[in-house]
Design a protein around this nucleic acid. Structure first.
Lengths: 134, 134
DNA sequence: TATCTGTTATAATTGTTGTATAACAGATAG
DNA sequence: CTATCTGTTATACAACAATTATAACAGATA
Protein backbone atom coordinates (compact mmCIF):
# COMPACT_ATOMS: atom_id res chain seq x y z
CA UNK A 1 0.00 0.00 0.00
CA UNK A 2 1.29 3.40 -1.01
CA UNK A 3 1.75 5.99 1.69
CA UNK A 4 2.41 9.63 0.88
CA UNK A 5 3.61 12.13 3.46
CA UNK A 6 3.12 15.84 2.86
CA UNK A 7 5.87 17.57 4.79
CA UNK A 8 4.27 20.95 4.17
CA UNK A 9 0.93 19.92 5.64
CA UNK A 10 -0.42 21.43 8.82
CA UNK A 11 -1.20 17.90 9.96
CA UNK A 12 1.64 16.23 11.89
CA UNK A 13 3.38 13.37 10.12
CA UNK A 14 2.30 10.71 12.61
CA UNK A 15 -1.30 11.89 12.14
CA UNK A 16 -1.09 11.65 8.33
CA UNK A 17 0.31 8.16 8.69
CA UNK A 18 -2.42 7.12 11.10
CA UNK A 19 -5.14 8.59 8.86
CA UNK A 20 -3.86 6.91 5.71
CA UNK A 21 -3.70 3.53 7.42
CA UNK A 22 -7.30 3.91 8.62
CA UNK A 23 -8.35 4.94 5.11
CA UNK A 24 -6.40 1.97 3.75
CA UNK A 25 -8.32 -0.33 6.05
CA UNK A 26 -11.66 1.20 5.08
CA UNK A 27 -10.92 0.86 1.36
CA UNK A 28 -9.55 -2.66 1.55
CA UNK A 29 -5.99 -1.68 0.65
CA UNK A 30 -5.21 -3.14 4.04
CA UNK A 31 -6.93 -6.22 5.39
CA UNK A 32 -7.56 -7.43 8.91
CA UNK A 33 -4.63 -9.59 9.95
CA UNK A 34 -2.28 -8.06 7.39
CA UNK A 35 1.26 -7.27 8.50
CA UNK A 36 2.54 -3.72 8.41
CA UNK A 37 6.21 -2.85 7.84
CA UNK A 38 8.32 -2.61 10.98
CA UNK A 39 8.77 0.83 12.47
CA UNK A 40 12.36 0.95 11.17
CA UNK A 41 11.46 -0.31 7.70
CA UNK A 42 8.58 2.14 7.22
CA UNK A 43 10.56 5.01 8.70
CA UNK A 44 13.39 4.34 6.24
CA UNK A 45 10.98 4.06 3.31
CA UNK A 46 9.29 7.36 4.15
CA UNK A 47 12.50 9.12 5.13
CA UNK A 48 11.32 9.87 8.65
CA UNK A 49 12.32 8.88 12.15
CA UNK A 50 11.34 5.55 13.66
CA UNK A 51 9.81 7.32 16.65
CA UNK A 52 7.37 9.12 14.38
CA UNK A 53 6.20 5.81 12.94
CA UNK A 54 6.12 4.35 16.43
CA UNK A 55 3.86 7.17 17.59
CA UNK A 56 1.41 6.50 14.76
CA UNK A 57 1.47 2.75 15.49
CA UNK A 58 0.89 3.44 19.20
CA UNK A 59 -2.14 5.58 18.45
CA UNK A 60 -3.55 2.94 16.10
CA UNK A 61 -3.01 0.35 18.82
CA UNK A 62 -4.77 2.55 21.39
CA UNK A 63 -7.66 2.91 18.96
CA UNK A 64 -7.91 -0.83 18.48
CA UNK A 65 -6.84 -0.93 14.84
CA UNK A 66 -3.40 -2.43 15.28
CA UNK A 67 -1.86 -5.19 17.33
CA UNK A 68 1.77 -4.75 18.23
CA UNK A 69 3.84 -7.78 19.08
CA UNK A 70 7.48 -7.78 19.92
CA UNK A 71 8.06 -10.88 17.82
CA UNK A 72 5.66 -10.69 14.90
CA UNK A 73 5.72 -6.93 14.50
CA UNK A 74 2.70 -4.81 13.64
CA UNK A 75 -0.44 -6.59 12.45
CA UNK A 76 -3.78 -5.06 11.55
CA UNK A 77 -6.34 -6.16 14.14
CA UNK A 78 -8.69 -8.96 13.15
CA UNK A 79 -11.46 -7.84 15.45
CA UNK A 80 -11.73 -4.15 16.03
CA UNK A 81 -13.22 -3.72 19.51
CA UNK A 82 -16.45 -1.80 19.94
CA UNK A 83 -16.04 1.71 21.21
CA UNK A 84 -19.40 2.65 22.70
CA UNK A 85 -18.46 6.32 22.69
CA UNK A 86 -17.53 6.36 19.02
CA UNK A 87 -20.73 7.86 17.67
CA UNK A 88 -20.61 10.61 20.28
CA UNK A 89 -16.97 11.27 19.47
CA UNK A 90 -17.75 11.33 15.76
CA UNK A 91 -20.63 13.69 16.36
CA UNK A 92 -18.33 16.13 18.16
CA UNK A 93 -15.85 15.93 15.28
CA UNK A 94 -18.54 16.57 12.70
CA UNK A 95 -20.27 19.40 14.53
CA UNK A 96 -17.97 22.28 13.49
CA UNK A 97 -17.74 20.93 9.95
CA UNK A 98 -21.49 20.73 9.50
CA UNK A 99 -21.84 24.15 11.11
CA UNK A 100 -19.40 25.66 8.64
CA UNK A 101 -21.21 23.98 5.75
CA UNK A 102 -24.46 25.58 6.90
CA UNK A 103 -22.80 28.99 7.28
CA UNK A 104 -21.49 28.67 3.73
CA UNK A 105 -25.01 28.05 2.48
CA UNK A 106 -24.45 24.45 1.54
CA UNK A 107 -27.79 22.69 1.22
CA UNK A 108 -28.81 19.70 3.29
CA UNK A 109 -28.91 17.63 0.13
CA UNK A 110 -25.45 18.65 -1.01
CA UNK A 111 -24.03 17.81 2.40
CA UNK A 112 -25.76 14.44 2.45
CA UNK A 113 -24.57 13.75 -1.08
CA UNK A 114 -20.99 14.58 -0.19
CA UNK A 115 -20.97 12.19 2.76
CA UNK A 116 -22.74 9.51 0.74
CA UNK A 117 -20.23 9.79 -2.07
CA UNK A 118 -17.29 9.44 0.31
CA UNK A 119 -18.91 6.54 2.11
CA UNK A 120 -19.95 4.69 -1.02
CA UNK A 121 -16.68 5.11 -2.87
CA UNK A 122 -14.70 3.70 0.04
CA UNK A 123 -17.08 0.80 0.50
CA UNK A 124 -16.97 0.06 -3.22
CA UNK A 125 -13.17 0.00 -3.24
CA UNK A 126 -13.23 -2.45 -0.36
CA UNK A 127 -15.77 -4.62 -2.13
CA UNK A 128 -13.70 -4.67 -5.31
CA UNK A 129 -10.65 -5.71 -3.34
CA UNK A 130 -12.53 -8.59 -1.75
CA UNK A 131 -13.86 -9.72 -5.15
CA UNK A 132 -10.33 -10.01 -6.45
CA UNK A 133 -9.42 -12.33 -3.56
CA UNK A 134 -11.91 -14.99 -4.65
CA UNK B 1 -24.04 33.72 23.58
CA UNK B 2 -22.37 31.35 26.01
CA UNK B 3 -18.84 30.26 25.25
CA UNK B 4 -17.17 27.44 27.13
CA UNK B 5 -13.44 26.77 26.96
CA UNK B 6 -12.05 23.37 27.91
CA UNK B 7 -8.50 23.97 29.04
CA UNK B 8 -7.80 20.24 29.09
CA UNK B 9 -8.86 19.73 25.48
CA UNK B 10 -6.41 18.70 22.79
CA UNK B 11 -7.86 21.49 20.66
CA UNK B 12 -6.11 24.86 21.11
CA UNK B 13 -8.13 27.56 22.83
CA UNK B 14 -8.29 29.83 19.78
CA UNK B 15 -9.62 26.89 17.76
CA UNK B 16 -12.34 26.11 20.31
CA UNK B 17 -13.33 29.76 20.25
CA UNK B 18 -13.42 29.85 16.47
CA UNK B 19 -15.45 26.63 16.27
CA UNK B 20 -18.02 27.77 18.81
CA UNK B 21 -18.53 31.06 17.01
CA UNK B 22 -19.09 29.22 13.72
CA UNK B 23 -21.53 26.88 15.46
CA UNK B 24 -23.22 29.91 17.01
CA UNK B 25 -23.65 31.41 13.56
CA UNK B 26 -25.04 28.17 12.14
CA UNK B 27 -27.55 27.80 14.97
CA UNK B 28 -28.66 31.42 14.96
CA UNK B 29 -27.21 32.23 18.37
CA UNK B 30 -25.20 34.76 16.40
CA UNK B 31 -26.65 36.73 13.53
CA UNK B 32 -25.06 38.35 10.53
CA UNK B 33 -24.17 41.90 11.46
CA UNK B 34 -24.12 41.19 15.19
CA UNK B 35 -21.31 42.69 17.25
CA UNK B 36 -18.94 40.43 19.12
CA UNK B 37 -17.27 41.45 22.38
CA UNK B 38 -13.94 43.24 22.00
CA UNK B 39 -10.82 41.12 22.22
CA UNK B 40 -10.09 42.51 25.68
CA UNK B 41 -13.63 42.08 26.94
CA UNK B 42 -13.95 38.47 25.74
CA UNK B 43 -10.46 37.61 26.94
CA UNK B 44 -11.33 38.91 30.41
CA UNK B 45 -14.65 37.05 30.46
CA UNK B 46 -13.02 33.75 29.49
CA UNK B 47 -9.94 34.27 31.63
CA UNK B 48 -7.54 34.06 28.70
CA UNK B 49 -5.13 36.38 26.95
CA UNK B 50 -6.29 38.99 24.47
CA UNK B 51 -3.89 37.62 21.86
CA UNK B 52 -5.61 34.25 21.96
CA UNK B 53 -8.95 35.91 21.24
CA UNK B 54 -7.29 38.03 18.59
CA UNK B 55 -5.96 34.92 16.89
CA UNK B 56 -9.42 33.37 16.76
CA UNK B 57 -10.90 36.62 15.41
CA UNK B 58 -8.15 36.82 12.79
CA UNK B 59 -8.86 33.32 11.57
CA UNK B 60 -12.59 34.03 11.40
CA UNK B 61 -11.80 37.16 9.42
CA UNK B 62 -9.55 35.19 7.05
CA UNK B 63 -12.38 32.70 6.58
CA UNK B 64 -14.85 35.47 5.77
CA UNK B 65 -17.04 35.08 8.86
CA UNK B 66 -15.97 38.21 10.69
CA UNK B 67 -15.28 41.83 9.85
CA UNK B 68 -12.74 43.59 12.04
CA UNK B 69 -12.75 47.36 12.29
CA UNK B 70 -10.59 49.51 14.46
CA UNK B 71 -13.51 51.71 15.39
CA UNK B 72 -16.58 49.49 15.46
CA UNK B 73 -14.83 46.37 16.74
CA UNK B 74 -15.69 42.85 15.61
CA UNK B 75 -18.89 42.33 13.64
CA UNK B 76 -20.22 39.11 12.15
CA UNK B 77 -20.08 39.37 8.37
CA UNK B 78 -23.31 40.15 6.58
CA UNK B 79 -22.29 38.44 3.37
CA UNK B 80 -20.04 35.43 3.71
CA UNK B 81 -17.98 35.25 0.52
CA UNK B 82 -18.07 32.10 -1.61
CA UNK B 83 -15.09 29.82 -1.23
CA UNK B 84 -15.03 27.67 -4.37
CA UNK B 85 -12.67 25.19 -2.74
CA UNK B 86 -14.87 24.67 0.29
CA UNK B 87 -16.46 21.40 -0.77
CA UNK B 88 -13.08 19.93 -1.64
CA UNK B 89 -11.68 21.08 1.67
CA UNK B 90 -14.66 19.64 3.50
CA UNK B 91 -14.27 16.38 1.65
CA UNK B 92 -10.67 16.07 2.79
CA UNK B 93 -11.71 16.79 6.38
CA UNK B 94 -14.45 14.18 6.26
CA UNK B 95 -12.41 11.45 4.58
CA UNK B 96 -10.60 10.07 7.66
CA UNK B 97 -13.76 10.37 9.77
CA UNK B 98 -15.88 8.42 7.29
CA UNK B 99 -13.07 5.90 6.93
CA UNK B 100 -12.98 5.34 10.67
CA UNK B 101 -16.76 4.98 10.78
CA UNK B 102 -16.52 2.25 8.13
CA UNK B 103 -13.73 0.48 10.01
CA UNK B 104 -15.87 0.53 13.14
CA UNK B 105 -18.68 -1.17 11.21
CA UNK B 106 -21.01 1.78 11.25
CA UNK B 107 -23.66 1.34 8.58
CA UNK B 108 -24.20 3.74 5.71
CA UNK B 109 -27.62 4.52 7.12
CA UNK B 110 -26.36 5.25 10.62
CA UNK B 111 -23.71 7.56 9.24
CA UNK B 112 -26.22 9.39 7.05
CA UNK B 113 -28.61 9.63 9.99
CA UNK B 114 -25.93 11.09 12.24
CA UNK B 115 -25.05 13.79 9.73
CA UNK B 116 -28.69 14.51 9.03
CA UNK B 117 -29.47 14.86 12.73
CA UNK B 118 -26.61 17.31 13.23
CA UNK B 119 -27.57 19.28 10.15
CA UNK B 120 -31.28 19.39 10.92
CA UNK B 121 -30.94 20.26 14.58
CA UNK B 122 -28.69 23.20 13.79
CA UNK B 123 -30.97 24.44 11.03
CA UNK B 124 -33.99 24.08 13.31
CA UNK B 125 -32.32 26.10 16.05
CA UNK B 126 -31.58 28.83 13.56
CA UNK B 127 -35.17 28.79 12.29
CA UNK B 128 -36.54 29.03 15.83
CA UNK B 129 -34.30 31.98 16.53
CA UNK B 130 -35.53 33.77 13.42
CA UNK B 131 -39.16 33.05 14.33
CA UNK B 132 -38.68 34.79 17.67
CA UNK B 133 -37.42 37.89 15.91
CA UNK B 134 -40.69 38.48 14.11
C1' DT C 1 -8.93 64.31 27.86
C1' DA C 2 -9.93 59.75 28.96
C1' DT C 3 -11.40 55.54 27.12
C1' DC C 4 -12.50 52.42 23.92
C1' DT C 5 -11.29 49.79 19.40
C1' DG C 6 -8.05 46.52 16.58
C1' DT C 7 -3.15 45.99 15.72
C1' DT C 8 1.74 45.30 16.27
C1' DA C 9 6.05 44.21 18.70
C1' DT C 10 8.82 41.81 21.97
C1' DA C 11 9.82 38.39 25.26
C1' DA C 12 9.19 34.33 28.16
C1' DT C 13 7.06 29.97 28.93
C1' DT C 14 5.13 25.71 27.97
C1' DG C 15 3.84 21.77 25.19
C1' DT C 16 4.14 19.27 20.75
C1' DT C 17 6.57 17.43 16.99
C1' DG C 18 10.40 15.41 14.95
C1' DT C 19 15.12 13.85 14.88
C1' DA C 20 19.26 11.44 16.72
C1' DT C 21 21.50 8.00 19.30
C1' DA C 22 21.50 4.34 22.21
C1' DA C 23 20.13 0.59 24.58
C1' DC C 24 17.01 -3.45 26.22
C1' DA C 25 14.25 -7.87 26.01
C1' DG C 26 12.41 -11.22 23.37
C1' DA C 27 11.97 -13.90 19.10
C1' DT C 28 14.12 -16.00 15.16
C1' DA C 29 17.19 -17.54 11.38
C1' DG C 30 21.90 -19.00 10.21
C1' DC D 1 25.91 -19.34 19.91
C1' DT D 2 25.62 -15.43 17.06
C1' DA D 3 23.62 -12.17 14.30
C1' DT D 4 19.57 -9.97 13.21
C1' DC D 5 15.08 -8.80 13.50
C1' DT D 6 10.93 -7.11 16.44
C1' DG D 7 8.61 -3.36 19.59
C1' DT D 8 9.87 -0.49 23.49
C1' DT D 9 12.08 2.83 26.43
C1' DA D 10 15.17 6.62 27.62
C1' DT D 11 17.58 10.75 26.82
C1' DA D 12 18.81 14.82 24.53
C1' DC D 13 18.15 18.36 21.30
C1' DA D 14 16.09 21.50 17.84
C1' DA D 15 12.17 23.58 15.85
C1' DC D 16 7.75 25.10 16.18
C1' DA D 17 3.01 26.24 18.01
C1' DA D 18 0.27 28.01 21.65
C1' DT D 19 -0.33 31.05 25.42
C1' DT D 20 0.73 34.64 28.43
C1' DA D 21 2.57 39.19 29.73
C1' DT D 22 3.58 43.89 28.98
C1' DA D 23 3.72 47.66 26.25
C1' DA D 24 2.81 50.64 22.83
C1' DC D 25 0.41 52.75 18.54
C1' DA D 26 -3.36 54.89 15.63
C1' DG D 27 -7.88 55.92 15.21
C1' DA D 28 -12.63 56.54 16.90
C1' DT D 29 -15.68 58.11 20.54
C1' DA D 30 -17.93 59.97 24.75
Amino acid sequence: MLIQIDFASDLPIYRQLRDQIVIGLATGQLEAGEELPSVRRLAADLGINLHTVHKAYQQLRDEGFLVLDRRSGAVMAKNIPDQPEFQNWLSRQLEPLVAEAICRKMSTNDLQALVRTLDQSMRQLKKDGEMQNE
